[in-house]
Nucleic acid binder design. Sequence first.
DNA 1: TCACCATGATAGGCTTCATCTATCATGAGC
DNA 2: GCTCATGATAGATGAAGCCTATCATGGTGA
Lengths: 313, 313
Amino acid sequence: MIGFIYHERCLDPMNLRDLRYLLAVAEHQHFGRAAAACGISQPTLSVQIRKLETLLGVALFERTRRAVVPTTACERLIGHVRAAVAEADAMLAEARTLRDPLAGRLRLGIIPTLAPYLLPLVFAPLREALPALEVEPWEDQTAALLERLRAHDLDAALLATEVDGSDLASRSLFAEPFLAALPAEHPLAGRDVVAETELARDILVLADGHCLRDQALAVCGRGDGSGGTLRAASLSTLLNMVAAGYGTTLVPGLAAGAAQDAGIVLRPLAVPAGRTVRIVWRARFPRRAAVEAVGEVIATRLRGFAEAGARAV
Amino acid sequence: MIGFIYHERCLDPMNLRDLRYLLAVAEHQHFGRAAAACGISQPTLSVQIRKLETLLGVALFERTRRAVVPTTACERLIGHVRAAVAEADAMLAEARTLRDPLAGRLRLGIIPTLAPYLLPLVFAPLREALPALEVEPWEDQTAALLERLRAHDLDAALLATEVDGSDLASRSLFAEPFLAALPAEHPLAGRDVVAETELARDILVLADGHCLRDQALAVCGRGDGSGGTLRAASLSTLLNMVAAGYGTTLVPGLAAGAAQDAGIVLRPLAVPAGRTVRIVWRARFPRRAAVEAVGEVIATRLRGFAEAGARAV
DNA sequence: TCACCATGATAGGCTTCATCTATCATGAGC
DNA sequence: GCTCATGATAGATGAAGCCTATCATGGTGA
């Protein structure tokens, strides 16, 4: 909104305090009692009210021995005064609830290969541990999340990659192993353990931009990015393709349940590999405490997940 | 309205000025430019914003080399801040229009024997001379008007009696002669001049409480108040009774036209008598200028009325 | 009628705080 | 690596808010 005038130095001496004084005198119709209600001395109140009258150029009260009666001008003004003071008080009250760093909204970015599988696990613990914090998830790929984070459109993000830049800080939360995902009828499905290179032959990967795509290709020794012709838009699509026998892939551990539900066979890798999930925030973000609390809840919930996940297969 | 807290000394240092500073920084997203817009130095602005943050216990801005970005807490608060500042500005604007003492509402009491005849004469001149003044007439008897005046329910009153009490002040506006009012067929109607004592025999007067009642009786030498049995509620009723031949009365000059319209014969008194119309206000009323301006307009409009009225009969 | 009381205004001194100029710290860009 | 831009910090200064003490005034009661 344009049009506010900040520079009104001649009018600036008007204080919220003075407006409270005005309300007090209007209510008590008595300087002494109003002063007591405001916790100041009567002379101070008299001076301040007179100052306000001079400032406004309007007599606010008619002083009598008997009573102090608001003028009609005062009655016209006092509605605005009440509203201004009420808004200021509302602001203070709002600030009081916001004072708790573990309260308020926290916009949290999450990568697509993590969100559908992690969120159901941590939603309840977050609500329990941080009831005043409204975590707003935002799902997008790593690059987009980092851009939004740097643009202050997000407060933090859950990523599976290292981040660079001194403007960002991060903390690792948990390690997520990769598992070989095979169609039930696949030749490798009988093995206890699958070698990465064997997987590479008919591996399917996600579309560009997903960090999991590059990581899966790297694990299989296809770091040049020459994956198969299929580029699935989502991990869910990819799993359905594998289940249908179009090829193999690597799935992150948290998606194991979804993969098995689709009829996919999961096997550990001969040389265990995986990714580390981290929470990232701007180094200057003032509510670091909230971010770290969220990270702590997630890390606690996922503690021992890597081993448990590996055992479960 | 109860429930406002005046005594919040720990929170009081929050100033409207600081809120304007906050809005400026939020808009410019730059301390230097915001400071310039506020007409203060950048260090001052930095200190004040930090003070406000400390006071609220909430970080309001995330400072970067590149930009100064409002935090989500700030975004939640800024609506209230804008509203508070807007209300304060509205109050200042209202005060600016009220600053003119010749503007605003003026509640003016008028006695019933004067109002219907005076108001039509002075309404247009008042609107022309004091266009910003909203004169609100209030018709009642003298005692009620004085009570309302002292209770601040009226700002001034037009009376036809002297007022006592150091709490009130008054100014005489014009003299209003009394005229003998006779039915057309009345024996005295043929005279050029009527003696007061002759009138006294069958005089009709107003009900108790009308100052005109006592004044008429006094003029006729019936100061004991032993008037006729009729006690008319209004001068209009009284005139109709006279016109119907029930008796005589004294009418104030401004009502001459109405009396003649009713078919009443008017004659001057042998010993001219009348009443003085005054404007009365509380001695401590701060808008004395408005009252005196109204009085001046009325006095000017009625200048020379006593003679003109006497000649017209 | 006069002393007394209540109430708001005024005076003088003290303390706090908003403001300034000068300077520092830090990160971006050439 | 130097320079510029930007916000933070330090110390000095002046205004203003607050207090206690006192005055002025008008209503009240013996």
